[in-house]
Design a protein around this nucleic acid. Sequence first.
DNA 1: CAACTAATCAAGTAATCTATAGAATATTTG
DNA 2: CAAATATTCTATAGATTACTTGATTAGTTG
Lengths: 227, 227
Amino acid sequence: METEASHRVFKDRLYGQFARIGKALANPHRLELLELLAQGERTVESLAIEIGVSMANASQHLQSLRDAGLVENRKQGLYVHYRLADESVFILSKGLRTVAERRLAELERLVREHFGDRSDPEPVRMEDLLARARSGLVVILDTRPASEYVAGHIAGALSVPIDDLKKRLRRLPKGKEYVAYCRGPYCVYADRAVELLRKSGRNARRLLDGFPEWKAAGLPVEIEVEE
Amino acid sequence: METEASHRVFKDRLYGQFARIGKALANPHRLELLELLAQGERTVESLAIEIGVSMANASQHLQSLRDAGLVENRKQGLYVHYRLADESVFILSKGLRTVAERRLAELERLVREHFGDRSDPEPVRMEDLLARARSGLVVILDTRPASEYVAGHIAGALSVPIDDLKKRLRRLPKGKEYVAYCRGPYCVYADRAVELLRKSGRNARRLLDGFPEWKAAGLPVEIEVEE
DNA sequence: CAACTAATCAAGTAATCTATAGAATATTTG
DNA sequence: CAAATATTCTATAGATTACTTGATTAGTTG
């Protein structure tokens, strides 16, 4: 017969294991790392620069994510490339964002202050974009850095990193309908692209979600093939 | 024009907000509280006793969950009742468990050691139970404490708290097929019930998931109506 | 093989988190 | 209104986490 005490020991161990995952999510830098890694694998150095911490610090955070099983890495030459360990890790971080959006009034205020009114033009939903893309009416622009496009992008999308958009604007035909996307709902690249495109008299909207959400939804993606 | 620095400030604030949720998930007791609250609302005292911590400590953890927006409370007389704030909170904690199951070898080992081989008899899946329940062939037993049954249970289930099962066994007809469920996959009540039922010569299996998963899947539930 | 570089390690300090104990508060009950 | 009770508050000590700095490791390149 199992005692009450031994049952408590089991539960403590059980929730101790679950808490390993929770602890990994308990730091803003680690959450930002997970979001960047959802775009595809990256090196420690590039992650450290992007999130604005020292390399030693980024390395430590990545290791604690690895200890919790959330990411994996591989060494290639001098560089160590990290990636999300599993699709479920993206689902988890998306779940965390969903709760934050629903429950934290301060988050909503923060986003409103930073982005202003994002409902004009109305963002496009993934299903709508899929339908329009099939009819060939719409040009899809991937505004993320080229390396992220290479690692995976919405099928049929053009790579137009936001910093290149200005000089490539002239070559984008008018009269078309544009939809820009980037890393996710809190990424600013697509908003900037839409602004530039509309100022130049083009019809443009942003995709509400980013590439990771598109991919997780099982919608068509492409990966750049190495020659 | 937005500066790089101000963009960093925004991102730091943004991920700071997300991390509020992450921090709330970073403690084993808090995760256990969330799982108990997924069964329905409960008082501080009953939660403290169940998870084996002092009332002051339980109160503090519940308050930090509330500060993160994960739970809400209401005061009734001397008692403060806490409940999950939103369906999305259960989805999040389920996502966390899924990642732990997939990624932590130690968790699998722990569960195997404690439960032994759980595949004989094979647990029933929710869809299967739904189909069998409709055909009226199966008796569904809710083995959780009565208070949790009252707060919500699988439609048509009988309340047979695990501690009462022994003395109620005689009144359960033989020749029927029984399916027992409880709080979730790591809850032991249903396993114990299945063991008792089978020892007495009855045909019994456990439901793989618990009540919260059933409810979250949108399957039919009932709530005890107060007279 | 020497110089260089990406990444990690190790140690120290500051900050944060956790549990405890005892006091304080709010509400009910006799 | 006094006693009892559920909960919260406050202060504190100990544990854990986070970031920095400088050294070390592993791999590349000339």
